[in-house]
Design a protein around this nucleic acid. Sequence first.
DNA 1: GTTGACCCTGTAGTTACTACAGGGTGTAGT
DNA 2: ACTACACCCTGTAGTAACTACAGGGTCAAC
Lengths: 138, 138
Amino acid sequence: MSSGVLTIGDLSKATGVKVETIRYYERIGLLPAPDRTSGNYRAYGNSDLGRLSFIRRARDLGFGLEQVRELLSLSDQKQRSCEAVDVIARDHLADVDRKLADLKALRRELDSIIRHCGRGTIGECRIIEALAPIDPRH
Amino acid sequence: MSSGVLTIGDLSKATGVKVETIRYYERIGLLPAPDRTSGNYRAYGNSDLGRLSFIRRARDLGFGLEQVRELLSLSDQKQRSCEAVDVIARDHLADVDRKLADLKALRRELDSIIRHCGRGTIGECRIIEALAPIDPRH
DNA sequence: GTTGACCCTGTAGTTACTACAGGGTGTAGT
DNA sequence: ACTACACCCTGTAGTAACTACAGGGTCAAC
């Protein structure tokens, strides 16, 4: 490949995003479809690399693809107010907090159940017991 | 419906699991396919209700469907050692802990970024900046 | 020319649901 | 008997975000 032109593999190595995932992002419109080489290879430029890095970072922070799409759109509008970005980020943070709370509650319960697990048989198993119907009325 | 026979709707109301999800569980073999009424309605018994309750509780604790399948199988073997159950539960707890750690790290970074977000324009936005490529070499 | 890494498109699978579409059943009310 | 409405049925496809082939083409080094 000639200097200045990047292959999909180059982008993958540079960002840690898989080739298949990059093609997926193109399919769903997150990444623009680049020009092609004479061999039909995708020919990316540095701006594509920058955009993919942005996507990767946002994904790593847990933003959903649609949120990433919005953030990308906003990032192109330099004169626009920062507020929309703030809203997206705060909504997401609130979502993360909810997930954290749920996961903590789950962990607490699970830990409690496991802590009481002895070394007997299934018939006496506290874990199974905790999952079983409460009212084994015969 | 006659006394003692439960419809899929009955099970749904009793456990909070959706009708469609119950049919899904039957399809993947988690729930046995029950007898049918003359009108082709599913005719469940109390043991089916018990089994679905078990599944629901295990799902609520975050166990994956395959883990639930194993737990159900183990729960039928009363004389068997409790150890297999213990392993499944501890593996799952370790998984939950990993997720918790990841989510906490994510939250920390996200919070830090948001905290520095001012009230300017996108061009000055710290959130966008944090996501953008590090080396905007022109 | 050969070889091996990489590229391409298209299709389907992962996990755990979820949502129709189109049609049948059961029950209460008129 | 008819009507209305809630519920049931099967089959199909969609959700989110990837991921993994299959089968075939390209590129560069040897």
